[in-house]
């Protein structure tokens, strides 16, 4: 069964938007997400296929409403929990812990779920 990332041929998406300057990153945090991911893969915390899989198994509504590097960050935090590197509580900022509904942004962190093999 295909996952939500398999959008080839799907209808209903908006028009393609070309940016005049086409920057590689639209905010500093995006560059940091890219670098964090590279660091964790180089260290063997997880591999590239596990990273792709973590993006592709995002719930469809979260996948479609997340920007490119928001998807990456969701995948990173999902894998850090599943690999036992950190708990969802440790990954949450103090502000998020004070307002738990914010944890719903990366859906996996809000859903109690047994890590698959970790």
């Amino acid at each position: 069964m295909s996952r939500i990332n398999d959008v080839g041929g799907m209808v209903g998406f908006p028009a393609i938007v070309e940016e005049p300057d086409e920057p590689a990153f639209h905010a500093d945090w995006e560059a940091h997400v890219l670098a964090l991911n590279a660091a964790l893969i180089r260290r063997g915390v997880y591999n590239l296929d596990e990273f792709r899989d973590a993006i592709e198994r995002m719930p469809p509504d979260a996948y479609l409403s997340s920007s490119y590097y928001e998807k990456w960050f969701t995948a990173i935090t999902t894998l850090l929990v599943e690999k036992g590197v950190a708990t969802p509580e440790e990954l949450a900022t103090p502000e998020e812990l004070a307002t738990p509904e914010e944890l719903a942004t990366p859906e996996e962190l809000a859903t109690p779920e047994e890590p698959a093999g970790g």
Partner: peptide, 30 residues
């Protein structure tokens, strides 16, 4: 989200999974 990324980055640095200066170096490399 930039706050959340900073928080996770600091946690990983504290656990020795990311070296000091590594993030900037990897951004430049990319």
């Amino acid at each position: 989200i930039s706050e959340r990324v900073r928080h996770v980055e600091a946690l990983l640095e504290a656990r020795g999974l990311v070296d000091e200066g590594e993030i900037d170096r990897r951004i430049d490399e990319f």
